[in-house]
Nucleic acid binder design. Structure first.
Lengths: 240, 240
DNA sequence: CAACAAGCTGCGGGTTTACGCAAGACGGCG
DNA sequence: CGCCGTCTTGCGTAAACCCGCAGCTTGTTG
């Protein structure tokens, strides 16, 4: 069995290497990549079926890499190993995981034991292992309760990118008014009105900008999500 | 000599511990803290004069911690050891370093050698050591060339927080029109008009929101900067 | 001191946002 | 089928935003 490690921090990489060796005696080869681009290439060359992937990498992040890898070989098993449990990451991952694929999401703060267990469960037993903290987010995020609908999330991203109402309407195939309706919904859920009306005349917020910030502070958005969205936007702009 | 290490990743922490031992034989005690809050407390209790500090920590980030530490004892020597060289961090650090203080900024990607050298230079020789990559940013950022003025940066933060023009005017003691002038300057420098006018009628951006995003993508802003700004805003709102 | 650049301010107007109101469209469900 | 909730769309309005124009206050420089 071969395992590919994609992780840009050398310390973490060697830690992972050791953990894999310890947890998987049946593994005879470990390959390492220091960013997403190299990771994709190695995965392709070696036809890797077992990958441990960091999410936040400078060059090309884990979600991008995982997406192209899964596109080529959907049965690949990937364990995401991340520092954070931002809702943006969780949402990003669940967006790209193929039907029935075995994958995992473990936080770097987890114990050695937990990491090793996850490695065995996913790579040997083909089970999904999601860190309980992440799991909580997932439920909230994807279930409708308290979470955001896809359309709400979509429009959040659109205003975060800085599109006008009109541009959003065109992009999403909606009328101007519908876009604005969704915006209102979003403002509502993000509770942007908070101190807006407290001392009238005074501390009013610019709802649109405020919504983006609040989403950021709540980890609904993060750098990597923005980066991806921006890339998609540029792509769309090309295609007129 | 005593050295305090403030770093939330256990792996990095023990790596630092070893590096300190290797580089500074005259150091007899090493203390560790796993976040900013604990770091502040230990620094106070031990009257630490030599600190190695991570910037990005979940609980209370390095800039906050360094600020209060320096406020209490400005002669403290601090080596910032960070993953990133975001302009937001660089700016944040240079904002809080006291006159004539010895400090350093080394990236985690630097070699062992570089780290050890920096440790000796700062703690023994009282010299400032700034990673060359960071140095570049600093020049650009604080020198006027190509960089942003304080007032431009200020207004960038204000719109990022989601304040209205009127609110900004009140907060900064300016007229409405002046605020808008500064906004125009900002839009100009951030080059927000880029594809705005390309296919007229169509892909227009909302300048205000776009400016924030562009700043984010350029690392002019980041989570930690937003977080700090939000805290300051809340404080200001309290004080009416 | 005159001259000039840089920043603040008011005025005016064109555009974009935010949102109430109300009229369809669509899909369950009794 | 008729009732109801959710989603979409158009109309209209008040507010906010973007910005050109022009008069003022500064600080700088020859």
């Amino acid at each position: 069995m071969k395992v590919l490690i994609v992780e840009d921090d050398p310390l973490h990489r060697s830690y992972l290497h050791e953990a894999v060796n310890a947890a998987l005696p049946e593994c005879d080869t470990v390959i390492e990549a220091e960013n997403g681009t190299v990771g994709e290439k190695l995965a392709r060359d070696h036809k890797s079926a077992h990958i441990v992937m960091d999410l936040q990498m400078a060059k090309r992040n884990g979600i991008e890499a995982a997406r192209t890898i899964w596109k080529e070989r959907p049965e690949t098993r990937i364990l995401f190993w991340s520092n954070y449990s931002d809702e943006a990451y969780v949402r990003g991952v669940s967006r790209i995981v193929p039907d029935g694929a075995a994958y995992g999401y473990v936080l770097k703060s987890a114990s050695d034991e937990r990491l090793k267990l996850a490695l065995r469960s996913i790579f040997i037993e083909s089970q999904c292992v999601i860190d309980r903290e992440v799991r909580g987010l997932q439920q909230k995020s994807l279930g409708q309760t308290n979470g955001f609908t896809d359309s709400e999330y979509e429009i959040l991203v659109d205003i975060a990118l800085g599109l006008t109402d009109r541009a959003i309407a065109k992009r999403r195939g909606l009328s101007l008014r519908s876009v604005q309706n969704r915006l209102q919904q979003l403002y509502d859920k993000l509770d942007v009105y908070q101190s807006a009306g407290d001392d009238h005349e005074d501390g009013r917020f610019n709802l649109r900008a405020r919504a983006v910030t609040v989403a950021f502070l709540r980890k609904l958005l993060n750098y990597s999500a923005l980066e991806r969205a921006e890339a998609e936007l540029q792509e769309w702009l090309e295609g007129k």
